[in-house]
Amino acid sequence: MTVTIYDVAREAGVSMATVSRVVNNNPNVKPQTRKKVFEAIERLGYRPNAVARGLASKKTTTVGVVIPDISNMNLAEIARGIEDIATMYHYNIILCNADKKKDKEIRVINTLLEKQVDGLLFMGGTVTDEHIQAFKTSSVPIVLCATTDDNNTIPAVDIDHQQAAYDAVKLLVDSGHRKIGMISGTLQDPSLGFARYQGYKQALEESAIPFNENYVRVGNYKYESGIEAMKYFLALEDRPTAVFAATDEMAIGAIHAIQDAGLKVPEDISVISVDNSRMASMVRPQLTTVAQPMYDIGAVSMRLLTKLMNKETTDQTKYVLPHTVIERQTVGQV
């Protein structure tokens, strides 16, 4: 049978109120009494009822996290940052994978809110009007993590994706490349895919390089789409001398397609991307990429959420973290 607070009180020879004070770390308990209660808890294997405590305090010390793709290594690193800060501030995490499906994301958001979480982190997905509507029904704080909404109305932590893409393409331009292709993410994703596409176009325009529609292929952020896009570029009569991929995974697909065609990176074609996932240093040659501070994005998001949950004063509710160009071996001079 389930051990109750009444059983602990009887075992320790104290009142239920005293057991409650011990469990909730109330300082107004004598050390000897506290010791007796803890010994009774250990003997009986008592576990406080989190649901009951949540009803009494109107807090569950639980945070819901919606993640679009749990297999994505970048998002896993962000989740580590979230978890570490949550642990520091004594919050538990409920992590829900949404498979990059909007309907599932909305359903998960509503389910977490029904579970009476104290706050919600929405990680790395496209924020649509349907998401905004679901967020409006929330009575608890919500922070966007590695994404933003179009109107910047919801607290958010991310990098400047357009600037990151611009910096990547500018490195190619500064290396002498004029024929630069792009393997883009979905352009229906304003905060990531479209933003990086805009950064690509901005770098070309400022370098007086004409935009060529044949040099842009839309992928799905995955390795296989990088292979397919690169095969398309290789088949062009006037193929690019360099390719900017919107993610490391697509860039690695592009590198392998180049190598499978009997060509070399960067001697024949240069490749650069954004992310700096672990795979970037595992592939050969090692991938030149723009590093997102994945762990920091998660940590800062969770810290911001703790402030909002505890109604602390915050200087700002939108944080744009710095990115860094990591030069390795896949960009060559022309």
Rank of each mutant, 00 (worst) to 15 (best):
residue 176 G to H: 15
residue 121 L to W: 07
residue 234 L to T: 08
residue 312 E to C: 03
residue 37 V to G: 01
residue 279 M to E: 11
residue 327 E to T: 08
residue 120 L to C: 09
residue 246 A to N: 09
residue 97 N to R: 06
residue 250 M to A: 13
residue 149 D to R: 06
residue 23 V to R: 01
residue 314 T to Q: 08
residue 261 A to C: 09
residue 286 Q to W: 00
residue 320 V to Y: 10
residue 94 I to S: 06
residue 334 V to N: 13
residue 145 C to E: 00
residue 5 I to C: 01
residue 131 H to V: 11
residue 72 N to P: 12
residue 12 A to D: 01
residue 132 I to P: 04
residue 197 Y to G: 01
residue 193 G to H: 02
residue 99 D to W: 10
residue 170 K to D: 12
residue 200 Y to Q: 11
residue 174 D to L: 09
residue 17 A to R: 00
residue 312 E to K: 13
residue 22 V to M: 03
residue 28 N to M: 14
residue 291 A to L: 03
residue 87 T to W: 04
residue 135 F to S: 05
residue 177 H to W: 08
residue 12 A to I: 04
residue 116 Q to K: 14
residue 194 F to L: 13
residue 66 V to Q: 00
residue 289 T to W: 08
residue 148 T to Q: 15
residue 47 R to Q: 12
residue 95 L to G: 08
residue 255 I to N: 07
residue 27 P to G: 07
residue 170 K to H: 12
residue 170 K to I: 15
residue 29 V to T: 11
residue 131 H to N: 15
residue 56 A to S: 14
residue 77 E to N: 14
residue 241 T to I: 05
residue 289 T to A: 03
residue 239 R to E: 00
residue 195 A to L: 02
residue 28 N to A: 15
residue 4 T to L: 02
residue 221 Y to T: 10
residue 306 T to A: 04
residue 71 S to H: 15
residue 95 L to Y: 11
residue 16 M to C: 00
residue 248 D to K: 03
residue 231 K to L: 09
residue 75 L to C: 12
residue 6 Y to R: 09
residue 333 Q to G: 08
residue 275 D to F: 11
residue 304 L to H: 06
residue 168 A to G: 01
residue 296 D to L: 12
residue 180 I to G: 06
residue 11 E to G: 04
residue 334 V to R: 14
residue 120 L to A: 10
residue 132 I to V: 14
residue 176 G to Y: 14
residue 333 Q to S: 15
residue 217 R to N: 06
residue 330 T to N: 11
residue 43 R to E: 10
residue 102 K to P: 12
residue 190 P to V: 09
residue 218 V to T: 13
residue 301 S to H: 07
residue 149 D to W: 02
residue 24 N to E: 07
residue 75 L to Q: 12
residue 128 T to G: 09
residue 177 H to Q: 06
residue 186 T to R: 09
residue 278 R to V: 15
residue 162 Q to S: 15
residue 240 P to T: 03
residue 272 I to N: 04
residue 246 A to H: 08
residue 3 V to L: 07
residue 309 M to S: 04
residue 3 V to R: 06
residue 278 R to F: 02
residue 254 A to Q: 13
residue 247 T to K: 03
residue 93 I to S: 02
residue 156 A to H: 15
residue 9 A to F: 06
residue 277 S to Y: 01
residue 189 D to Y: 10
residue 70 I to A: 12
residue 121 L to S: 10
residue 254 A to M: 09
residue 89 Y to A: 00
residue 139 S to Y: 00
residue 168 A to N: 06
residue 52 A to L: 05
residue 277 S to D: 08
residue 260 D to P: 02
residue 79 A to T: 14
residue 305 L to E: 00
residue 101 K to R: 13
residue 242 A to E: 05
residue 96 C to W: 06
residue 23 V to D: 02
residue 34 R to K: 15
residue 295 Y to G: 04
residue 182 M to A: 10
residue 42 E to S: 06
residue 169 V to T: 05
residue 128 T to A: 10
residue 207 S to P: 14
residue 319 Y to V: 12
residue 316 Q to H: 05
residue 322 P to K: 07
residue 60 T to Q: 11
residue 252 I to R: 08
residue 68 P to R: 07
residue 13 G to N: 05
residue 102 K to T: 11
residue 221 Y to P: 03
residue 60 T to W: 14
residue 176 G to R: 05
residue 217 R to M: 15
residue 22 V to R: 07
residue 295 Y to S: 00
residue 242 A to V: 01
residue 269 I to A: 08
residue 274 V to N: 04
residue 174 D to P: 00
residue 29 V to M: 13
residue 226 G to P: 06
residue 23 V to Y: 01
residue 17 A to N: 09
